[in-house]
């Protein structure tokens, strides 16, 4: 394509001589070729970077992986680096709990909001909502954490915990074992708000890929709008919505600072949403200072990062592949 163009230019520019300062056609063709090559190298970088990150973490984690083996790290219940015990299970479960609670709180509200924006809302409402979501997405994690300390932890401590203790305390899942407010529920609430803009905007995109013809076909036989949404739009959007949820879950899974500030950070295996938890990212973040003094400590933390990376890569690649396919339909 470019060669064809440049021969064409070569003839043209001879005719148009006297305009002076334009570079010669040959130079421009060479410039184009060089640029193409340079650009190509640059596009390999993203893929390379993923591999390099994984490889570097793996290399630094290798001492402990080879000494203990992955299963005993993943399923070990005791974390006592001083005794050489490195069990990730409490941390992995802590991450899973916080992520699940966050997703359970966030997903229903966000999907409803996204359906409303895509199917019912006036374009003015949509235009007003966008900056709100943008700002929510722009607020730094540490500010979310601060908000958690100011509002959510006291709210859990003074309102939710007493309420649940009184009415639902007999269910282990809602038992209040250590009433501080810091814990899985607080972390989950903060996460729920953090991932909301992502879920809403991706779900909105997914809903807008459903062709209007289908909506009209359903409305034309006298279906109400909700009947149309439930019978036609939602089934069509399902793969994309699931992908959006998985994407948001992987974002929640790796969230560090905001969660770490409100979740309590006690390495126990939690049994109730009011229990403290110690998520994997918080483990990495909290221990960077001391890691050099204890043998294998740095390798343990970097293998924690590796586990985190592996889980998130799987989630991310799957959801992104689905979303790429879904959103291309537009």
């Amino acid at each position: 394509m470019s060669e064809v163009n440049s021969t064409f230019i070569a003839q043209e520019s001879r005719k148009g001589e006297g305009r002076g300062s334009r570079p010669s056609a040959a130079f421009r063709a060479r410039q184009d070729k060089a640029a193409r090559r340079a650009f190509l190298v640059v596009t390999i970088l993203p893929i390379l970077l993923i591999l390099v990150v994984a490889a570097a973490l793996f290399a630094r984690a290798w001492p402990i992986l080879s000494a203990y083996g992955l299963p005993s790290l993943l399923f070990g219940k005791v974390w006592k680096p001083n005794n050489g015990q490195f069990g990730f299970l409490p941390f992995i479960l802590g991450t899973v709990w916080v992520t699940l609670v966050g997703a359970l709180l966030s997903v229903p509200a966000c999907l409803l909001a996204a359906v409303y924006l895509a199917e019912y809302a006036h374009s003015r409402t949509r235009a007003m909502t966008k900056p709100i979501l943008d700002v929510l997405a722009a607020i730094p994690p540490v500010v979310y954490g601060a908000w958690g300390l100011i509002a959510i932890v006291p709210f859990v401590d003074e309102v939710l915990a007493p309420l649940c203790d009184r009415w639902l305390g007999f269910i282990p899942l809602f038992a209040v074992n250590q009433p501080t407010g810091f814990g899985i529920l607080a972390g989950g609430i903060v996460l729920a708000v953090m991932v909301a803009p992502l879920i809403i905007s991706v779900a909105f995109e997914v809903f807008s890929t459903v062709p209007n013809d289908l909506r009209h076909a359903s409305l034309a036989v006298g279906a109400t709008q909700w009947q149309t949404i439930r019978n036609i739009v939602l089934p069509q959007a399902k793969p994309g919505i699931i992908a959006a949820i998985v994407l948001a879950a992987s974002r929640a899974f790796g969230e560090t600072v905001a969660v770490l500030m409100v979740v309590g950070n006690v390495p126990n295996i939690p049994t109730s949403i009011f229990d403290s938890a110690y998520p994997l990212p918080a483990l990495i973040a909290n221990n960077y200072g001391e890691m050099m003094s204890i043998p294998l400590y740095d390798a343990a933390l970097l293998s924690a990062a590796l586990v985190l990376l592996a889980v998130i890569l799987i989630f991310n690649i799957l959801s992104t592949l689905v979303l790429q396919r879904v959103l291309r339909r537009k």
Binding site: V53, L247, F253, P281, L301, A305, L309
Partner: peptide, 10 residues
């Protein structure tokens, strides 16, 4: 999608 803590660790 890779969390910044992983970049930090890297």
């Amino acid at each position: 999608g890779i969390p910044s803590i992983v970049y930090g660790a890297f």
